[in-house]
Write a protein that binds this DNA or RNA. Structure first.
Lengths: 124, 124
DNA sequence: TATTGACTTGGACTTAGTCCATCGTAGGAT
DNA sequence: ATCCTACGATGGACTAAGTCCAAGTCAATA
């Protein structure tokens, strides 16, 4: 555990954080100016491998890193401003996929993204 | 309707096609060698706006373009080789999100990606 | 002290996509 | 038939996001 890794982990601390790698780098640089981009990517990759952080690709742009990895949840994304909320729907989406629709795959995960407009963007 | 647009539309014809923009460009170039990258992106963008084609971001890499836009469906992706299948789960995922989890959003869409291993990759 | 090995660094590189000035062409006006 | 105009196409430059790599640093061990 080096200073760099600690800083990256600290930056990602919190309940409803969905930062891009560049945002993580910016916040990490505030605390440890000499940290490099490569180290941020390396550390994020390790955290993902360890299962401490989840990679979320909500928009086809930069990936976001979600430290809320131990509580299963899905994401609600505003199509207007890109705001992201964690949500906890009822029911397991995996059970909605019947065996006849699995084509022999070993299905292990269902990722759900709800899209819509947040209250601010719905007004405008 | 120009020759270029027709070629892009032809390339995307089919039921279970999930091509990246570069793949569309490559196939289009086979038929019309002087077509440019910008035209492919422009045309894909128009098809998406028209609702004829759906943009799918299954992997955080290149977006894929799915012409099966008129039949609601979800995607099953192999974590090993990236293969994509269209699937039609039972039940509407939107109805799994209770009002208490909507945070005032106007939710209009739910995008589900199932992940797992295809038969080939599960063997290896 | 010297060696080892893991981690970090900065910069070059790659991929995916966008932007823009210019060019070509089809269709309408004269 | 010729000229105009406007839209679409072109290619090249540019940006964003991410990866790769050779070299440097540092701490623990022999």
């Amino acid at each position: 555990m080096t200073a760099q890794r600690r800083v990256v982990a600290e930056v990602l601390d919190g309940e409803h954080v969905h930062l891009t790698a560049d945002e993580v780098l910016a916040r990490a640089t505030d605390r440890l100016p000499e940290i490099s981009r490569a180290t941020v990517y390396n550390t994020l990759g390790e955290l993902v491998t360890l299962g401490e952080v989840i990679e979320v690709a909500t928009d086809g742009r930069a990936k976001r890193y979600d430290p809320n990895a131990h509580q299963p949840h899905q994401h609600l994304v505003c199509s207007g401003c890109g705001a992201i909320r964690d949500v906890h729907p009822g029911g397991d989406p995996l059970s909605d996929l019947p065996a006849s629709e699995r084509f022999g795959f070993t299905v292990s995960e269902a990722e759900v993204t709800y899209r819509g407009l947040c209250p601010e963007c719905a007004k405008a």
